[in-house]
Amino acid sequence: MLQVLYSGTTRELELSGARPELLALGGLLRGKAGSRELSESGDPFPYAGSLSRIVFREDPDSETASIVAEGEILRIRGGREALDLLADNIEGFASEADASHHWHVESPACDYIAPESDPLVIGFMK
């Protein structure tokens, strides 16, 4: 199960899941387009709510990956190289990180992430 929580004031997003689901998300991002239903949280505190779906697509005209919440959907779109880097890093985090760790995916720290992207934290489901 994957879940994405959002903050109504800071635009920050938290994507969490078990290792197998995070690994599967990395694999999914390697395709040209796709989507995945998300588990909704009954009590998202300290966040404002949860999103219901991830939708992604490759954009051959882009050199970066954009990660933006629109309504109840997390939209990820970008160039193939940027999406592959995101997939590699998600898979690496899921494979190697301690269960208590989290990873901040945002520009400019991740130079393949578009500056207009919402700040995203990836972690393991508690």
Rank of each mutant, 00 (worst) to 15 (best):
P46I: 03
S7D: 12
E72A: 15
L2N: 00
E14I: 07
R77G: 04
L22Q: 12
I76R: 06
D61N: 14
E63R: 10
G78E: 01
E72I: 12
G26L: 09
Y47L: 14
I76G: 00
Y47M: 15
V55A: 08
E58I: 00
P115S: 04
V121N: 09
R75C: 02
S41C: 13
L5V: 03
F56Y: 15
G78D: 03
L29P: 04
E106G: 02
S16H: 10
E70G: 00
D88H: 13
I113Y: 04
S117C: 09
T10G: 08
I90T: 08
I76A: 04
L5H: 09
S35D: 14
S107P: 01
A82Y: 05
S62V: 03
M1N: 04
G79P: 04
V121M: 10
A65P: 08
K126V: 08
E37N: 10
S35N: 13
A94M: 12
G27V: 13
A33G: 05
Y47E: 15
P119S: 09
S7Y: 01
S41T: 15
S7V: 00
A65H: 03
E40S: 10
D59P: 00
G123W: 05
N89P: 07
P46Q: 10
G123T: 07
A18Q: 15
I122F: 15
Y47N: 11
H102E: 12
G123M: 05
F93M: 08
D98C: 06
E21T: 05
L5M: 08
L15N: 06
E14N: 08
G71P: 00
P115Q: 02
T10E: 15
G8E: 14
A33W: 06
E70Q: 14
D59H: 03
S7H: 06
R75F: 02
D84Q: 10
Y47H: 15
R77L: 09
A48W: 07
A69W: 02
R11G: 01
I76P: 00
R11H: 09
S100R: 05
H102D: 10
R53F: 01
A24F: 05
L25F: 06
S39A: 07
L38W: 12
E116Q: 11
F124M: 06
R75V: 01
G17C: 10
G92W: 09
L86W: 01
L38C: 13
R19V: 07
L51Y: 07
H102P: 00
S66I: 06
L15E: 04
